[in-house]
Computed example of a mutant assay.
Amino acid sequence: MQELKESALSDPAPKKAPIRRHRTLFLSDLHLGAIGARADLVLRFLEQNRADTYMLVGDILDAGVPFSLGRATACDAVIEHLRRRHAEGAKLIYLIGNHDPEPSLVPNGRRLPVEACDEVVHVAADGRRYLVVHGHHQDRAFIRSHLLTRIGTYLESLARLVCAAVVPTEDCRARVWGGKIDKAFAAVNTALHFGRGHEHRLVELARQRDADGVICGHYHMAGIHDRHGLLYANCGDWVTSMTCLTEDYNGRLHLVDGRALSISGAGLLTEAQVVHA
């Protein structure tokens, strides 16, 4: 498999970017409804990046924190955009994550027009087959605890609510305190997944499915590599990293910075070009 290459980000240009088209967009961990979610950035990205297939790789909604009046409009706009793209002929595939509510409990206005599933095999334009899962089923047993998931959600929400109450301006909250909260929870997340054993387990699961690699979300640690013998790709999230995966019409997978790509067309973080031997 071809060696992965790093590419530096360029500064965002002030002009509006043209609409970019992709064969597939892989988005995970939007956590719509959660206090830390950035539905505004998600919507801007989706408006400037169209795909034939939208692969929603889990934790699109967040069952732990109901939509508040302040967040509902932006979050609903993301759902409405996806529903509209589906009506226009785009394909939606929705993989359920550990934060997603039970589909039957989602109000009709926030329900996507597709059935949620646990895993799917995506066939890329070059014929390569990728197992796509959210990833939480490969956590160690104590991390998979539903109670632990909810405790983490409420602790993060409480920290952001306290920040909003004590920091006077939104700009300061976003630049300073929001960044500190993001770093703190990222450090906790890294500690919980020390050694990244989940990558090995997910790659092994892909082998069992006779796939050429695995694409997942869940871990909020964006990355793409083939260090375990098959391709491992993690979409990242839209709470801290604001990253996603894209597939072009040649079957190449790209990990992109959603903020930069939605503004300027830069934003390529890592490129994995999968080629036939």
Rank of each mutant, 00 (worst) to 15 (best):
S7D: 15
P14C: 12
P14V: 11
K16N: 01
R21A: 00
H31E: 04
L32H: 01
I35F: 06
R38E: 13
A39G: 13
A39V: 14
L41W: 07
L41Q: 09
L43C: 00
F45C: 06
Q48K: 11
N49W: 07
L56Q: 03
V57F: 07
D59C: 14
I60W: 11
L61W: 10
G64Y: 12
S68Q: 04
A74Q: 10
D76A: 12
H81V: 14
L82H: 06
H86E: 05
G89W: 05
K91F: 00
I93M: 07
Y94E: 04
L95F: 00
L95W: 00
L95P: 02
E102N: 14
E102Q: 07
S104F: 07
G109D: 09
L112E: 13
V121M: 09
A125H: 10
G135C: 11
D139I: 02
R144Y: 02
H146Q: 08
H146G: 08
L147N: 11
L155H: 02
L158G: 12
L161F: 14
L161A: 15
V162S: 15
V166I: 10
V166E: 08
R173H: 03
W177M: 13
K180H: 11
I181T: 03
F185E: 02
A186T: 15
V188P: 00
G195S: 00
R201T: 02
D210H: 08
V214C: 07
C216E: 01
Y219N: 03
G223L: 07
A233Y: 04
S241E: 10
C244N: 10
L245I: 15
L245T: 10
T246Y: 00
D248L: 08
N250Q: 15
V256W: 03
L261C: 09
S262M: 14
A266D: 14
G267S: 01
L269I: 15
A272N: 01
Q273Y: 00
V274S: 06
V274Q: 02
